[in-house]
C-alpha cells in the first residue's frame, strides 16, 4: 500500500432505503477507500436491509478488493439483537479473515473472541487507556477507534505504545455519534411510539437538527442516537495525523457529497491540494475534541485553506 494512511468508510449511521444503500456501496466499491464498514449499528428496528443483505454486501465489497468490516449494533437489547450478532460473527468466521467485525459492546467482543474472529474496537467500546487496549488486543482486536471525545493528547501516546499488530483508526469526518438511548427521539418528535415509529428516520437522510431557542444548531436526532449538528473534520489536521503515523481515518457517510469529501481526503493524504465542496456540511465543521476542548468548538484553520497550504510545504 503506497498511501501513507488508509481511508475508511464508516458504517452508515442513518436510515436509508435499500436502493440508496446499494448505490452508495456501488460507489464505495469504485472509490479510493481502503476499508469499508457495513451493517446496522444504530437501531435494530431498521429493516430495509436484513442481516443477510448486509453480509451479502460485505462479501461483494471484499471481492472488489476492499478491507471489509461488519458493524454490530452498539446497543444490544433483545434476544433478536444477539441472534443478528451471531450471524455477523459466523459470516466473519466463514470469510477466513477476509471480513472482520466491529465490536461496539462487550457482548460483541465475547462472541467474536469465542469464534476466533478478529475484531475492531469500535468508538463505543470506550478504550481510553493502554491497559484496556492491551486487554482487547489479547482477545483478538486488530484495530481500534478511539472514543470520539478523545483529544490528540490521549490518542497520540496510546497509538505510540499500541500492541503489536494493532491499527489505530481515527474518526475524521462526519456528524459525531454522541449518545444512545432506549428512547427514539425521532419517533417522539412525531408523537409516535418507538414500536410504531413508521420508520420516520427514512425521511431524514442526515437526521433531524436540534437547535437552541436562540437558533444555534447544536445536535442531530437520528432515531435512538443523538449526534452533533456540526460535522467533525480533521482534514486540516491531516499533516499531524500523518506525522503521528495513524493507520486509518474514518469518514462517516452522509447523503450529500460524501464521495467528494472522500476525494478531498484522498488528495490531501497524497499531499495534493484538497478542498471540500461548499455544500458538504449543513451546520459547518468542528474539531474541538481533537484539540482537547468542547467538541463543538472550531479551533483549527478552515479545512480548504490549511490543507492547500500544507500540501505546498
Amino acid at each position: 500500500m503506497s498511501n501513507p494512511i488508509k481511508l475508511a468508510i464508516g458504517p452508515i449511521l442513518f436510515y436509508w432505503s435499500k436502493d440508496e444503500v446499494q448505490n452508495f456501496y456501488l460507489q464505495a466499491s469504485d472509490s479510493p477507500a481502503d476499508i469499508v464498514y457495513v451493517g446496522e449499528s444504530v437501531c435494530s428496528r431498521r429493516c430495509q436491509l436484513r442481516t443477510s443483505d448486509w453480509i451479502g454486501l460485505a462479501k461483494d465489497l471484499a471481492a472488489a478488493g476492499k478491507d471489509v468490516v461488519l458493524s454490530a449494533l452498539a446497543l444490544a437489547e433483545s434476544e433478536g439483537d444477539l441472534i443478528a450478532l451471531r450471524k455477523l460473527v459466523a459470516a466473519c468466521a466463514e470469510s477466513g479473515g477476509r471480513i472482520r467485525l466491529e465490536a461496539n459492546d462487550l457482548g460483541a467482543v465475547k462472541v467474536a473472541a469465542e469464534a476466533g474472529v478478529p475484531f475492531v474496537c469500535g468508538p463505543h467500546l470506550n478504550v481510553y487507556n493502554e491497559a484496556t487496549l492491551a486487554w482487547f488486543a489479547a482477545k483478538g482486536a486488530v484495530a481500534w477507534v478511539p472514543p470520539l471525545e478523545a483529544p490528540r493528547s490521549l490518542i497520540a501516546p496510546l497509538h505510540a505504545s499500541r500492541p503489536v499488530g494493532m491499527a489505530t483508526e481515527v474518526f475524521a469526518w462526519g456528524k459525531i455519534p454522541l449518545a444512545f438511548s432506549a428512547r427514539c427521539f425521532t419517533a417522539r418528535h412525531y408523537g409516535l411510539k418507538k414500536d410504531d415509529c413508521q420508520f420516520r428516520c427514512l425521511d431524514h437522510a442526515d437526521g433531524l437538527t436540534l437547535a437552541t431557542r436562540e437558533g444555534q444548531s447544536f445536535l442531530t436526532m437520528n432515531g435512538i442516537q443523538t449526534m452533533s449538528a456540526q460535522h467533525y473534520s480533521l482534514l486540516a489536521e491531516l499533516p499531524a495525523l500523518l506525522d503521528l503515523g495513524i493507520d486509518a481515518l474514518r469518514l462517516s457517510p452522509q447523503s450529500k457529497d460524501f464521495f467528494a469529501v472522500l476525494a478531498a481526503f484522498d488528495a490531501a493524504r497524497r499531499g495534493e491540494p484538497a478542498g471540500l465542496p461548499a455544500a458538504c456540511t449543513d451546520h459547518g465543521t468542528c474539531d474541538g475534541y481533537w484539540h482537547g476542548q468542547a467538541g463543538i468548538a472550531k479551533v483549527g484553520a478552515e479545512d480548504d485553506t490549511l490543507v492547500v497550504a500544507a500540501s505546498g510545504a
Binding site: H124, E149, I176, A179, F180, S181, L219, G288, A294, G295
Partner: peptide
Amino acid sequence: CVMNEGRCWLSSYATGESPNT
C-alpha cells in the same frame, strides 16, 4: 438518565468534560 450510561458524550460536546473522563 435518558441516555445509555457510559456512552453519552453530550456533556463533553458542549463543555469538553464528560462523565467518562
